[in-house]
Amino acid sequence: MLEVQRRLVVQEAGRCTRTLQFDADRVTVSDGPHCAPALAGSFARDPRRSPFENE
């Protein structure tokens, strides 16, 4: 469930919990201590490759 703060907390297999924080053109992933493989990082949307270019 996406929270009001535009944050999504995902419980994966085992004890892994990932938090995704959404901003206008970026998502930041934070891994809990038991997540493998690590996906932590900040990922930006490339507006040149957006599926919504023509809007």
Rank of each mutant, 00 (worst) to 15 (best):
R26G: 01
D25L: 04
P37Y: 04
S42W: 08
D31E: 08
F43W: 10
Q5L: 12
E12P: 02
T19R: 06
V27A: 05
R7V: 08
E3G: 09
F52H: 14
G14N: 02
P51A: 07
E12Q: 14
C35I: 00
P47K: 05
G14M: 04
N54Y: 09
S42R: 14
V4F: 13
R18N: 02
R49H: 14
L20H: 04
N54E: 13
R7M: 09
S42I: 01
E12R: 07
R49E: 11
A13T: 11
V4C: 11
E3K: 13
A40Q: 08
P37W: 05
V29D: 03
D31G: 06
E55Y: 15
T17M: 08
P33W: 01
L2P: 07
R26L: 08
R15D: 12
R6P: 04
L2E: 12
G14A: 01
F52E: 15
M1L: 12
S42D: 10
R45A: 15
V27L: 08
L39K: 13
R6L: 14
Q21F: 11
F43I: 01
A36L: 13
D46W: 02
H34S: 09
E12W: 07
G41K: 09
C35A: 01
L39F: 08
Q11A: 15
V27C: 02
C35L: 00
V9T: 10
F22N: 03
T19V: 06
D23R: 05
S30C: 02
